[in-house]
Design a protein around this nucleic acid. Structure first.
Lengths: 228, 228
DNA sequence: ACCACTAAATGAATGTCATTCATTTAGGAT
DNA sequence: ATCCTAAATGAATGACATTCATTTAGTGGT
């Protein structure tokens, strides 16, 4: 058998980075493609499996090629986070009364980011300038608050308070079910242990949802009273 | 000059790991010491400078020695987080009415962890069994809720809601002041831009504090109404 | 006293990453 | 034609966390 001239040495998986050195005729990468691939990779492998090398592999590219389009891994995370912001449903602010709109937005926001909690530390300190779709979300929400007669000077504070609650609650969704099981220390924490048991008996739905509902309705009720 | 027999070769800094191989007469490390050193290191160098090697250096020990007492870096973070929980002020639950107690606890809790936001992802999914001091905090808080006539089945949900809000708000404290500066995109986001400006004019105190106060008072007011 | 066991150190790998750099190539502008 | 810049490759680099073999010191049992 003659050594094959065109076959790859390792026919294990297809789509290996078979591209010769130098600038290709048409660009392979751009930020949109990187974002989409990152999102898909995160969906398949989670944030643990999300490495620059793995991302490059799914794009059929050398890792270093990514750095022609983003300046760091954090940059990729910012792109992903901004894309996710566009998945948050703000449509209710144009069609429904304020209370219902806030409720729909908040649940949607929490649901989107509960699948992406590793992004929360990134979002929380990210200037809105770097995240246009996130900024668009804020615009839709503040327009809704404004239209509902919310006092101008408190709109941002109210949104920040809601958002803080949403981010914190997103973590809860991912927490293990038995996180409050006090185990062998139950005797030394009678009040807490009793409260945990009472909750298990009395509440319907997932605990994270019950808590989110409780806090959200509290904020909606009080904030609603601020409207002129 | 004879070659000195006891002087170290490199007199650059003192306290290098000059200890001969093998088990020392008295143990050098324990979890309490590791926790204290970690806390001090984090205070000095932040979470970026917090590496196992750096921690070992401050303890005058080889990095691998740490693994005789903790099983991972995450383990160290759990120890630190649990220590911080003991710094949260729950004393008001024994001396003050419910509303004031919740208020004092929540502000204290936020202030402690706003300096340690990288721990939040760790805490949020940590079983209480692994964090005895955190469990003690929950016990004090739920005892306070119980004593105040809060319905048993909702105590945990209420605490979780408050805690979620607290964690999210802890991030806000660390956010840059101009995080909401929409910059060149201001024209396309008139409502949000106006709201940001109105806030700057009208509100006193740090924005993060104003937002935290707003959300916290909303929860206290509504939750207070649940008491029997 | 002796011996086996376990605990607690050291120091030398290991392997995984993100990131950088030199090099190569393509296409557009002067 | 020539130059410049953009976009690839592939080969370092440098941090890290973590593991392993080895050494030494007490301890409990015989």
């Amino acid at each position: 058998m003659p050594a094959s001239t065109s076959a790859r040495a390792d026919p294990h998986h297809d789509a290996k980075p078979r591209r010769r050195v130098g600038r290709p005729a048409a660009a392979v990468l751009d930020q949109a493609g990187i974002t989409a691939a990152a999102l898909q990779l995160i969906g398949k492998s989670g944030y643990d499996g999300f490495t620059m090398a793995a991302l490059a592999r799914t794009l059929n590219v050398a890792p270093s090629a990514l750095y022609n389009h983003v300046s760091s891994k954090r940059d990729v995370l910012v792109l992903v986070q901004d894309h996710l912001a566009s998945l948050v449903d703000v449509s209710a602010f144009e069609a429904e009364p304020w209370e219902r709109a806030v409720r729909a937005w908040a649940w949607s926001y929490r649901d989107v980011f509960s699948q992406h909690t590793p992004l929360i530390p990134v979002i929380a300190v990210l200037p809105v300038t770097d995240a246009p779709k996130t900024l668009a979300m804020y615009e839709a929400v503040s327009a809704g608050f404004s239209r509902a007669g919310f006092p101008q000077g408190r709109i941002v504070s109210a949104i920040v308070a809601l958002e803080s609650f949403i981010f914190g609650s997103a973590y809860d969704v991912t927490a293990p079910a038995d996180i409050f099981d006090s185990g062998s220390m139950a005797e030394s924490t009678p009040n807490f242990t009793a409260a945990v048991q009472a909750q298990d008996l009395e509440s319907y739905g997932k605990p994270a949802d019950v808590a989110f509902n409780l806090g959200l309705e509290a904020m909606i009720a009080r904030f609603g009273a601020l409207r002129g």
